[in-house]
Computed example of a mutant assay.
Amino acid sequence: MNETSQDTVSFGYENVTPQEKTRRVGEVFSSVASKYDIMNDAMSIGMHRGWKDRFVKRVKPRPGEQILDMAGGTGDIAFRMADRGADITVADINQDMLDVGAERAMDRPASDETGSLVFTCQNAEEISFASSSFDAYTIVFGIRNVTFKDKALAEAYRVLRPGGRFYCMEFSTTEWSGFKEIYDVYSDKLLPRMGQAIAGDADSYRYLVESIRKFPTMPEFESMIRAAGFTNTKVEPILGGAVAIHSGWKI
């Protein structure tokens, strides 16, 4: 059964209507927007910075390229790609996250070698841009929060030019024995407490943990990417699959 034919979808461990999930995910990210980057440092012990550098190396942004960074709110990935000369459209469904990114962009030093940055409110399932508009599409730690992932993947394929590349980094399920048990305890017990201490919001971080658990496995998500039309798909596990970089090409 396709996701879009379901009457209910998962919001963490709850089943809710698609409209309810979209609303509640929006509330989660509005709640944590101002502390989002601080929490990323705390949750990953700073490792997310290295993961993002690694991700951008895989994307290989080039001067003059048009790249759509979906769910890019606070700009972490977009800034790295713009520093390599690519022109980045930062898209997010949550205006509060975009506001944080746009404010951070204003504090960045100007350079003739830096690509442009445009911030726009977009739903990953219904992107307003024309078909074949971008050379690359990136989405980092965002697609698990999309109500219908298959629709988002279809839209990613549509807006890419022939020869365009798709890159996604998302939390997944680690396959390292021993580490998985430690990671599960850390996620269940410590992350909500950190969310309360740093962002004043334990429930939002409890949802984020649950959304990781409900996300498809690496092979399952790769199959979804192929079903959207992408070829030469690959999966690069990090920490045994706790994080994974997925990629594919539009031929």
Rank of each mutant, 00 (worst) to 15 (best):
F129L: 06
G26W: 07
K57A: 14
V118L: 11
D201V: 05
Q122Y: 12
P162M: 07
A86P: 01
D188M: 07
A105V: 01
G195D: 10
N2M: 15
K21H: 05
M106L: 13
M194E: 06
R84H: 11
R49F: 10
N94S: 14
T22P: 00
I67H: 00
V56G: 05
G12K: 05
V16T: 09
N145E: 11
Y167S: 02
A244S: 12
R62K: 15
D112W: 12
I245Q: 00
T138D: 10
L208C: 09
E210G: 01
L160P: 04
E65S: 06
D92Q: 13
D53M: 13
Y36D: 12
T22H: 15
M97H: 08
G46Y: 03
I38Y: 03
D87A: 09
E222V: 03
G178L: 06
F171G: 00
W176T: 03
E222N: 14
T217G: 13
V32L: 07
S31F: 01
F166W: 05
V146N: 09
G26F: 09
V9D: 03
G50L: 12
E220W: 01
E155T: 03
F134Y: 11
A197P: 00
S34C: 05
E175R: 13
D99I: 10
S187A: 15
T4R: 14
R54H: 15
S30G: 15
P63V: 11
S177L: 10
I127T: 01
G12V: 03
G200Y: 11
K21S: 09
D37E: 15
E27V: 10
N94Q: 11
G163L: 13
Y186V: 10
K52M: 08
V32D: 08
E126V: 12
G73Q: 01
S34W: 09
K189N: 13
